[in-house]
Simulated scan of single mutants.
Amino acid sequence: MALMNIPVNMQGYKLMITEAPAMKMKENEKTGEMEPVTDRKTGAQQFVVSLFAKKRPQPGEFAGKGEEIKVTLTVDPGEGFEEGTYVQLVDATTSPWQNEKNGRYSSGISFKADGLTPLG
């Protein structure tokens, strides 16, 4: 059984929006048209935001490089979340995934949160 929705603590990271939140879309395999992604259980519209995550250095530590991550949001985050805004994630989780398409395998980690909170 795969682990899903593992709680993740991002308090030790600075999170800056690199792409403002938008409706999450996917291509319909039958029609080729783009359509909104909804939650399988609730039917609620999903959103996605791109963040640059960089570790907050502790005294005497080097901060290191950061990483851009995409986070699926379970609700519309509302207004005021523009590129360059620093945020915190509300109830963030991560889930490993894998799939196979046309004999090609891919895997990774997906991030999900119940919302965004602006910092500052």
Rank of each mutant, 00 (worst) to 15 (best):
V87M: 13
G12W: 03
Q58N: 13
G78Y: 08
V90G: 00
M4S: 11
G108H: 09
K30M: 14
G64Y: 04
L119A: 09
T85Y: 08
L116V: 06
M4Y: 10
F52P: 04
K112F: 01
S106E: 10
T31Q: 05
E19K: 11
I6L: 15
L116M: 06
M16A: 09
P57F: 06
G108W: 02
E61T: 05
K55G: 08
K112D: 02
S110N: 12
D91S: 13
A63N: 01
G108C: 09
A20V: 07
V90R: 07
E29A: 15
E33H: 05
S107R: 15
G32T: 08
A63M: 00
A2V: 13
G108T: 09
L3E: 00
E35Y: 01
T42E: 06
K41S: 07
T94L: 15
G84R: 04
E79I: 03
Q11P: 00
L51V: 02
L15G: 06
E27H: 04
I17G: 03
G84L: 07
M10T: 15
L73D: 10
L51T: 02
E61A: 07
T31R: 03
R56C: 12
E33D: 10
E68Y: 07
G78D: 06
T74H: 04
P59D: 04
V75Q: 09
A2Q: 13
M10A: 12
E29L: 15
T93K: 09
Q88G: 14
E83V: 14
A44W: 00
F52Q: 03
A92P: 02
V90W: 00
V75W: 01
R104E: 15
M16H: 04
P57V: 00
G12D: 14
I17R: 03
K55V: 06
P118W: 05
G43H: 10
S106M: 09
M16S: 12
E67G: 00
T74Y: 00
E79L: 08
A63V: 00
E67V: 12
K101Y: 14
V37W: 03
R104H: 13
G32F: 12
K70R: 10
G43F: 10
T18H: 08
T93Q: 10
G84I: 05
Q88C: 13
K112Q: 13
E35H: 02
V75F: 03
M16E: 15
E67I: 12
F111S: 01
T42G: 05
Q98S: 15
L119N: 07
P21W: 07
N28R: 01
E35C: 01
E100C: 09
M1Q: 10
A2M: 13
E68N: 13
V48M: 11
T42F: 05
E67T: 11
K112T: 06
F111N: 02
E79W: 02
P59W: 04
K101I: 10
F52C: 01
N99L: 06
P96K: 11
V8M: 02
E82W: 06
K70Q: 08
S95W: 07
K101E: 11
G120D: 09
K65T: 14
M1K: 09
P21F: 05
